[in-house]
């Protein structure tokens, strides 16, 4: 086997029919040499369970139709409960910037607005993976 790769669980709400943003990010991360598990979730517990099974280094949640605060409120404890205390959690999509700070307070390490130049998310992940902890 050759080398080690950052494993990202990229979760998108099943109800978000527009997948262009999440697919764009999936491709960007793949092209940055990461292994991206792409899947659509119904309930937040599915993200935590998938992160556990995949032993993901990063959990990335793509949100378009809002609900980000509730997702974070459910997701962070669900990850901690399962012992995933070292995982890096990021969010992106149509999230108003006023939510960034509340999301951080809930345990989301970083949120990204849409329209960023390519490579920003991958670079953030590369710099912060393995250093994060869920508090």
């Amino acid at each position: 086997m050759s080398g080690e790769h950052i494993k990202v669980l990229l979760a998108k709400k099943k109800i978000d029919v527009h997948g262009r943003g999440s697919k764009l990010i999936a491709r960007e991360l793949r092209d940055a040499g990461m292994e991206v598990v792409y899947f659509r979730f119904g309930v937040v517990a599915e993200i935590a369970e998938a992160a556990l099974q995949e032993n993901a280094d990063v959990v990335a949640v793509s949100v378009m139709t809002s609900g980000q605060l509730q997702i974070a409120r459910d997701l962070i404890p669900a990850l901690k409960e399962r012992g995933m205390t070292q995982v890096l959690v990021i969010m992106g999509g149509i999230i108003p910037e006023v939510d960034f700070e509340p999301l951080r307070a809930l345990g989301v390490h970083r949120s990204f607005p849409p329209g960023l130049p390519g490579g920003v998310v991958a670079e953030y992940i590369r710099e912060n993976v393995g250093k994060a902890s869920l508090v």
Binding site: A26, R30, V43, E46, A50, E54
Partner: peptide, 29 residues
């Protein structure tokens, strides 16, 4: 990818529905 070493693992997406948090199923990509 033979070029970047990255990968897009999409099988879980098709199976997630069948698994849906069921502890009797362990999927690894």
């Amino acid at each position: 990818s033979p070029f970047t070493g990255g990968a897009l693992l999409g099988d879980r997406d098709r199976m997630a529905e069948a698994a849906g948090g069921d502890p009797g199923v362990f999927i690894r990509s």
